[in-house]
Nucleic acid binder design. Structure first.
Lengths: 114, 114
DNA sequence: CTACATTGCGCAATGC
DNA sequence: TGCATTGCGCAATGTA
């Protein structure tokens, strides 16, 4: 149901009126509206800042993964090289070397390679 | 300078007027305003979605770093254990083992440990 | 019912 | 000249 304009004094307040009470009410609402809009804009701004923070953290983490992966790969090669140049692999029998050396870290999660 | 209300026909258009031209202009602006606001809200929504995407990616990367760090630590221990149980460390002299084994990945970047 | 908060909407100024 | 963007007030509606 649309408004109820110009009911003169039907209600004690509301539309199309310039009573003191009405103006006071309008003034308070206008303040509330301004306040609410400022708040809303700040929230939007914070969300955009959050995106930037997260992008930054993400870049750092990706670099870290890259470095760790490289190091791990290097150590694995070292292991394999050593294993093929010696005959007593038995020294490592207490560890599940097979598993570790065949364990590709890039398959630990299902996300895209970076 | 505040508006220029009720200049009757001073301008060919503008405020406080109900000429056909004026109404057409208002109608077009109202459309533009609605359109602009829809666009604005969509952008805000997209930004929020972006935050969620980034948080998700971040979590995955952190898990990956955790796993890689653990693996690397294990391989290092293996190396050290082997090194202390054998006398011919010379086999690894072609690599900068000292550096690798003392290279703590957690110091590669300046962010907090995870 | 009272009071503030949020939201859709139109107006006008201003940006492009 | 015209659409796009923005601050603002009104009224309806939501919330406490």
């Amino acid at each position: 149901m649309p408004p109820k304009r110009a009911k003169a004094r039907a209600d004690s307040l509301e539309s199309g009126d310039d009573s003191e009470e009405y103006r006071k009410k309008r003034a308070r609402n206008n303040m509330a509206v301004r306040k609410s809009r400022v708040k809303s804009k700040m929230k939007t701004q914070e969300t955009m800042n959050r995106v930037n923070e997260l992008k930054r953290e993400n870049t750092i983490l990706e670099e870290k993964v890259k470095t760790l992966t490289k190091e791990l790969g290097f150590l694995k090669e070292l292991f394999l090289a050593h294993a093929s140049s010696t005959s007593n692999e038995a020294k490592f029998q207490n560890f599940d070397l097979e598993k570790i050396l065949s364990d590709d870290p890039s398959t630990h999660t299902d996300h895209k390679p970076c």
